[in-house]
Structures are given as structure tokens and as C-alpha cells.
Nucleic acid binder design. Structure first.
Lengths: 145, 145
DNA sequence: TTATATGCAAATCCTTTGCCGTCGA
DNA sequence: TCGACGGCAAAGGATTTGCATATAA
């Protein structure tokens, strides 16, 4: 990830190196606060403002992707070559990445049929584990949305 | 919409009636500020806090749907029986609603294949009008996401 | 009458910014 | 060297909340 920064011509400071490293080493989807927390372990003097600024710089350089799951704060993941979407386990908050070409094609088609060229999309699925479901026979199987 | 409020057992105050009316009469997807602006025309003394509280109450009663398009503020629309998604025209900000059964089915399938029961989803497509495109031959046709 | 709702202002949360000293290329 | 960067604290926007008063049922 640090290499990517250099390739994009970003000035590599100690703080940026740390943020890059934190993001490289997590497979999670941390929010800014979490990145700050992890970065602080490597450099106790780093400031939250720097974290926010760095995240923004990385995002603008295209090496970082900003995600919003609708809980008011942004989350980040390193930009992937391969596009993917997210399924959020609503019981644990776990985030699962997935790819589905059919879905992409369908989205293109829908946009096109509406008279648009698709330039982007955001999609999150929310689900409950089927396993847990089986054991704990739940009542509501109706209210989808 | 007011009827819905009563059905759900909500106390109908003057302010709630006004917010309900504002939401009933718009086919738009207003944010809280916009609802407040419109409501203020009918009752110049209504407070923004009341608007926020009312929007929340309506949402919790299931007669209102909260949308987030990733620009930091929530938008609202009356809850539809029929589920639909949104395409945002990135050139004008216009919001187009659409339904697509294939898409719903595919989402169910994806979740299921990952070991989850789908309990919800959020999806927005972002697009540029094909017409405008043709006239203004644009450069970037690469960077999808 | 009495629990609920409203108005107002202050508070909260997440994020950005101004200013000035510091550091990377 | 010198412009870009980081730290700090203050500002910002969206949304929520405490408290006293007003109001629906």
C-alpha cells in the first residue's frame, strides 16, 4: 500500500506510512476512530486530524475506498482492483465481501433502461446467519424491506 | 398519511399533521431541512427539533423511510408498499425510483449463498443521462466503481 | 387530568479547518 | 531550501436532548 502511495506521487511522511500500514494490515472495515486508535499504537503522538486528512488524501488518490453503511460514520477499505459489494451481518456487525457479475450486469441494464449510463453504485445487503436461524426458531419472517 | 399515523396509534398534534402533509404532498426525497422549510410555510413557529423528532417517530412507526445517499444528510420518503430502489442522476441530483424483481431475487440468492437470510438492503445507482452524453462527448469512460 | 409533545438552546457526534511550527524531497 | 504536512484547538454541519411549558385524548 505504501508503494501505491509513492506511485501516485504522494509525499511519504511518517504518519502516512503508519496509516497505510494500519490499513494494509487490517482485513476489517475500520472507521476513522478505529484507524486512529490503531495508528496511535505505532505513533502515540499522531493526531486525529492527520488521520482524517490522510484518509481523504488516500481516497482521492484512489488507493482507499470510503464506505457508508448508514450508521453515520464512514468506513474505509483499501481499494480493490476487483469491485465487490458488502453484506453486513446484523447480528454481529461482521462485514462480508462478495462479487457477483450478474448483479453488476443487471445494474448496468437497469440504469441503461432508465436512460442512464451507470457511473457508480452503492449496495449493502443486511442479513442474519442461516445457521443461527435454524437453532433459534425466530418469529418474524415477514417484514422484508 | 395522516390516517396512517392514527392507525399506528400516534397522537396527532398540529405539527405532526403538518409534517405528514408536507411529506404527502411531495414526490421528492427531501432532507430534514427541506421538510422544515416546507413545514414552516404552514406553521412559521414549528421548530426544527420537532421536525427531526417527528421524522424519527414516523420512521419508527414504519410510515416513513429514511434514505442515505452518502452526502451526509438523511432524506425521507413515505414508505411504499412496493419496495423500490433509487438511481441518482449525478448531473442534476434528481432521484429516480425503480423496481426490479430480478434484482431482488438475485440479492436474496446472493445472501443465501453466503449463508444468510436477507433482512434488508440498501442500493443506489449513480448515473449520467445517456442523452446529454451523446451531445457532450465526454472523455472518461473508464473509471467505473 | 396527565402522559406526551413542543420550543428553545445547549449538547453531541463525526469531520473539517485555520494557524503556525515542522519535515520530506 | 521551501512548499507540503502535522498538531492543536476551534469551527462546522447534521442531529439529538434537557428542561419548562403547552396540548391531545
Amino acid at each position: 500500500m505504501e508503494r501505491l502511495c509513492i506511485e501516485r506521487g504522494l509525499r511519504m511522511t511518517g504518519q502516512r506510512r503508519i496509516v497505510a500500514r494500519v490499513l494494509s494490515e487490517t482485513n476489517d472495515h475500520p472507521d476513522a476512530e478505529e484507524v486512529y486508535r490503531l495508528a496511535s499504537k505505532l505513533d502515540p503522538k499522531i493526531s486525529i486530524a492527520t488521520v482524517y486528512r490522510t484518509l481523504r488524501v488516500f481516497e482521492e488518490a484512489g488507493i482507499l475506498q470510503r464506505l457508508e453503511f448508514g450508521d453515520g460514520r464512514a468506513r474505509f477499505e483499501r481499494a480493490a482492483i476487483e469491485h465487490h459489494d458488502h453484506l453486513i451481518d446484523t447480528s454481529s456487525g461482521k462485514v462480508i465481501e462478495f462479487q457477483n457479475v450478474q448483479l453488476e450486469d443487471l445494474q448496468e441494464k437497469i440504469a441503461h433502461d432508465l436512460g442512464y449510463r451507470l457511473v457508480g453504485h452503492r449496495m449493502e445487503l443486511f442479513g442474519l446467519p442461516l445457521a443461527a436461524e435454524a437453532s433459534a426458531g425466530d418469529k418474524d419472517s415477514g417484514g422484508e424491506c
